[in-house]
Structures are given as structure tokens and as C-alpha cells.
């Protein structure tokens, strides 16, 4: 199974004389079986300091990556691909059908590897 996370970078804002720092918001988070349960994600986001777990928003990319790794660990998935909305949109622009659309999720973004989830070696595959 693979996990994909599409995120949106929001610049800092001044609203009602309140400063909101730049942040990384999770837009979509899904596996091959569909979108992940939002309640579970909010629960897992609580482990990231200073994160807005209700809005699934993180102060920096490292925090977002930590969250992605945390979810991967929970679901025993080693790799999570992080794709920015900008990259996703570039991918859509170039896609024309189902095959090229699904290719967007293999071609763009960066992979966060969860080292705590062991990679299946050749022998490991025989024993699962």
C-alpha cells in the first residue's frame, strides 16, 4: 500500500490585527484504498508540537513530514509521498487520461521514509 499527501502552503496573514504565520495545510491524504479517516488524522496530528490538529495545519515542512511519517508508522506503511498543490496542478496540466493522471502521484513530490517501518527484504516477503 502507498500513501499520498497533497498539501497547500499558505503564506503568513494579518487578519483582524492578528498575525497568522505561514503554514502547511493538508488538503488530501489517501492510500490505495481511499481517503484516510479525518478523525484519526486529527488524533495523530496532536503528536506534532504547535500544530493546528483540527485544521491539519503545520508551521513548517519538517512538521508536516513528521506528521506524514507518524501516519505511515500507524498504518505500517514505509513511504509517504508529499505533493504540493502547485506540483499536483502542474501534473494535472500535463495529464490527459487516467494513466497520466495516476502517474502524477508517482512523478511529483518527495518521499518521506519512515525508518521505523522495516523495509521488506527478499526473505521478509516470504514470511508475510
Amino acid at each position: 500500500m502507498s500513501l499520498k499527501l497533497i498539501y497547500h502552503f499558505q503564506t503568513s496573514q494579518n487578519q483582524d490585527q492578528e498575525f497568522r504565520p505561514a503554514s502547511y495545510a493538508v488538503i488530501y491524504f489517501f492510500s490505495d484504498d481511499g481517503f484516510l479517516d479525518e478523525r484519526q488524522l486529527r488524533e495523530l496530528a496532536k503528536a506534532i508540537p504547535n500544530a493546528d490538529h483540527e485544521g491539519l495545519t503545520f508551521l513548517n515542512l519538517d512538521d508536516l513530514k513528521s506528521f506524514a511519517a507518524r501516519v505511515g508508522e500507524e498504518l505500517a506503511v514505509r513511504e509517504v509521498r508529499l505533493i504540493s498543490v502547485q506540483d499536483y496542478n502542474i501534473g494535472i496540466d500535463g495529464a490527459k487520461d487516467l494513466a497520466t493522471f495516476t502517474g502524477v502521484f508517482e512523478k511529483y513530490g518527495e518521499i518521506v521514509v519512515n525508518e521505523t517501518v522495516k523495509k521488506k527484504g527478499l526473505f521478509g516477503k516470504f514470511f508475510t
Binding site: 497547500h8 488538503i27 496540466d93 490527459k96 487516467l98 493522471f101
Partner: peptide, 22 residues
């Protein structure tokens, strides 16, 4: 110019023949 939806992603849909309509 491609349309952008509420969450910032381009609006695109897969049709019956699995073409991606943007």
C-alpha cells in the same frame, strides 16, 4: 487558464472513457 477549486487544486474530472477533462 485552468480553473482552481476551493482547496487550490485544478478542477478536472475523469469521464466515462477515462479521459481527464480539465
Amino acid at each position: 487558464v485552468l480553473s482552481v477549486g476551493k482547496s487550490g487544486v485544478h478542477l478536472a474530472a475523469l469521464d466515462q472513457e477515462q479521459n481527464l477533462n480539465k
